[in-house]
Amino acid sequence: MIPARFDYRRAGSVGEAVALLSEFPGAKLLAGGHSLLPLMRLRLAVPSLLIDIGPVSGLSYVRDEGDHLSVGALTRHRDLELSEVVRREAPVLSYAAGQVGDPQVRHRGTIGGSLAHGDPASDLPAVVLALDGTLVAEGPAGPREIPATDFFCGFLETAIGPDEVLTEVRLPKARGGWSFQKFNRRAQDWATVGVVAVAGDGRGTGPFRVALVNMGLTPLRAAAVEEAAAGGAGPAEAASRAAEGTEPPSDLNATAEFRRHLASVLVRRALEEAMAGERTVA
């Protein structure tokens, strides 16, 4: 419960953070700290230097850019939950952010940290995947864009380079039908399985995009379900293909077999809800 020895530096700008990352290969960025610090306390992560990007100004925002929203990497879950723009233009993100952990976690954790951590059990990565988002990472060579579908490479692995900072997430507006089904044993827990469904054309009539939480090494798009739904299959029929292409883990909360079953139930419920059309966040 006591982390190994580490140094600590505060970065005042993205450029400074990138420079420090380049200079100290054993360094890690610190955002909300709610994924990194628990690992450090268990000594599962032992960075030699923490670069605190909390002081970087101008990285916490939600902007309406016409056809899409831009969200700063340091935007906290709680801000996403409350943001009027997000509630209107991408309600599924607002709702999902409100389902993360508990209030303390939501007040500290950031969307950038959540995506960069690359945990398949996290909620927001699957939402960004279902929304067909684009991520912006900045390194020594300047910023570059990474489509969400290329971003998650493996368990806790993403496309961000060791000397890059994730700065922004761009999300196409999604005002149509949506659903976020999070199944867990306690309100504060990560999802045993989670399902995100959004209507692709923003009007609630499909094609539907569906993403899965905790059904493999990365957050996943349920391609078979999307294909079935696009071909006119009803929720139950499409949902029967929920587990195709997944490799769910077995852990204390569920075996892989049970996860596959849950995925089909939750995908069906998600599609039913999303197909019912536009809905505001309660």
């Binding site: 044993r185 306690r186 309100a187 504060q188 827990d189 204390l252």
Partner: peptide
């Protein structure tokens, strides 16, 4: 819980699913 080798599996309040008011 333990695995069959006697390794404890629920060594924190998250894995142990300690009850909270929300439940």
């Amino acid at each position: 819980r333990y695995d069959e080798d006697g390794n404890p599996l629920t060594t924190n309040l998250a894995d142990y699913t300690f009850v909270s008011a929300a439940e």
